[in-house]
Amino acid sequence: DVEPGKFYKGVVTRIEKYGASINLNEQVRGLLRPRDMISLRLENLNVGDEIIVQAIDVRPEKREIDFKYIP
């Protein structure tokens, strides 16, 4: 289970102007929005990149997770 405040290694699977889709595994994925990137710009991400993200909002009833990137 993903817990708010914990850090996870994820893989960038899609990049859109509203954010990047991050997969932690086949069943768990979430969104990294541009506003939640401290020192990383969306255009510097590539599909397949592995990054460390922090879960900031977990809504299991909607199967949604928001991530934050902290270098």
Rank of each mutant, 00 (worst) to 15 (best):
N25H: 08
P60L: 10
D36L: 03
I15H: 01
R14T: 08
L40N: 06
I22T: 01
G48V: 02
D49T: 05
L24C: 06
A20F: 08
K6M: 09
V53Q: 00
E26F: 12
G5M: 06
I65A: 06
V2A: 03
G10A: 10
G19I: 05
L31R: 06
G5R: 03
E50I: 15
I15Q: 01
G48E: 01
F7Q: 04
N25R: 06
I22Q: 01
N44A: 11
Y69P: 03
K6C: 14
E43R: 08
I22A: 01
L31D: 04
D57W: 08
D36M: 07
N25E: 05
D49I: 06
Q27K: 13
S39M: 11
R59K: 08
V2E: 09
L45C: 04
D1S: 13
E26G: 12
I65L: 08
A20H: 02
Y18V: 11
K9R: 13
K68F: 09
P60A: 11
A55E: 01
F7R: 05
S39H: 15
L45F: 04
V53T: 00
T13D: 05
R59S: 07
V58P: 04
D57V: 13
K68I: 09
V28H: 08
L32F: 04
K17C: 14
L32S: 01
A20Y: 08
L42F: 08
K62L: 14
L24K: 00
A55S: 03
L31S: 04
E64Y: 11
E61I: 08
D1H: 14
D36E: 05
N46E: 12
D66E: 08
I15N: 00
I52T: 10
I51Y: 01
R33A: 06
D57H: 14
K6S: 06
P60K: 10
Y8P: 01
D66H: 12
A20S: 02
M37P: 02
P60V: 11
I52E: 05
I56K: 10
V58S: 05
E64A: 06
I51M: 03
N46F: 09
E3I: 15
L31P: 03
S21L: 15
K9V: 12
E61T: 09
Y8C: 14
G30S: 02
V47S: 01
E61V: 08
